[in-house]
């Protein structure tokens, strides 16, 4: 089953980044079959449409608004979410649910689940997570793994563990791989 596990959210707004960290955490700590793609979606716009169209199963890890306590986790199937985007009544733009609605006009669309967590703070400008999110992070991962299991998607835990802290650090201090240039001549030789 062609599967995409997409971490959505804006890492520069504190808890907004939890979905991105979760997808990265799965990528670093688990092995999957070749037909599973892990996506650092970030504030994924139109490109989500392609995943909805080309994959059998799309799992989105994200924050969610809900009248519930901070840290509450939901697993929402796409059919429950259709109709919430209300294209006509909002003047704003591309969102996960709007993309779902647009794609619902297609003959065939991926089976989509959103694993969402109610965040504490998505306003502070900071790459990191609140304590409340950190303490619930493992629950979010487990909710994602449960959904994978239910859908018959295999995974295996790797022996070494990359911690949440290490993953956040990668996003907080990204380093340009080629900031001192790119070995053009080397690449050319390799090609030959």
């Amino acid at each position: 089953m062609k599967t995409a596990i997409v971490g959505a959210g804006t890492v520069i707004y504190q808890d907004e980044g939890i979905g991105v960290y979760a997808a990265k955490y799965l990528e670093e700590n688990y092995t999957f079959l070749d037909d599973v793609t892990l996506v650092d979606g970030g504030v994924l716009g139109f490109q989500l449409m392609t995943y909805y169209q080309d994959y059998d199963k799309v799992l989105i890890l994200d924050t969610i608004t809900m009248n519930d306590e901070v840290g509450a986790i939901y697993n929402l199937p796409s059919e429950e979410l259709l109709g919430l985007g209300s294209y006509k009544q909002t003047a704003h733009e591309v969102e996960i649910i709007e993309m779902l609605e647009i794609c619902s006009l297609l003959e065939r669309m991926a089976d989509v689940n959103i694993i969402g967590i109610v965040p504490e703070d998505i306003e502070q400008v900071n790459v990191g997570l609140s304590e409340a999110m950190k303490s619930k992070f493992e629950h979010l991962i487990n909710a994602a793994l449960e959904e994978l299991q239910r859908s018959g998607i295999e995974y295996k835990r790797k022996s070494a563990t990359v911690t949440l802290e290490e993953i956040i650090e990668k996003y907080a201090n990204p380093q340009s791989e080629f900031k001192n240039g790119y070995p053009t001549s080397y690449q050319v030789q390799q090609q030959k």
Partner: peptide, 11 residues
């Protein structure tokens, strides 16, 4: 405009 915040809103 929605650039900044991308939360799924269940309204």
């Amino acid at each position: 405009i929605a650039c900044a915040v991308h939360i799924v809103d269940t309204k």
